[in-house]
């Protein structure tokens, strides 16, 4: 159950960060409604941010695994 909560927390942070980045990018001057262009940008940005997060996760985990193998069992990860 704790793990489930950790996953929720993780997803929540991802959505928060994504909103922040994409709002910054796609809505430079907030008007009286979300324009079609802003909405399209937002949907693309959201997908891009999630893909980027995935890429980072894979690369990061692979790197710390490689490093802990080089350091022997139970090796530290340098972070």
């Amino acid at each position: 159950q704790i793990q489930q909560e950790a996953n929720m927390q993780n997803a929540r942070i991802l959505v928060e960060k994504l909103n922040e980045h994409c709002f910054e990018r796609c809505v430079p001057k907030p008007g009286s409604s979300l324009s079609k262009g802003e909405e399209t940008c937002f949907t693309a940005c959201m997908e891009k941010y999630m893909t980027a997060w995935n890429t980072v996760s894979k690369q990061y985990v692979a790197r710390i695994q490689k490093e802990s193998q080089q350091a022997g069992l139970g090796g530290s990860t340098g972070l």
């Binding site: 991802l14 980045h21 990018r25 940008c41 693309a44 941010y49 893909t51 997060w53 996760s57």
Partner: peptide
């Protein structure tokens, strides 16, 4: 991972409006 995504997204994604999700 969250912090790296934040930093690298800023560095690597070309500025301006975003057209494609990939």
């Amino acid at each position: 991972i969250h912090s790296l995504t934040d930093t690298c997204f800023r560095k690597c994604i070309s500025p301006g409006a975003i057209k494609k999700g990939a």
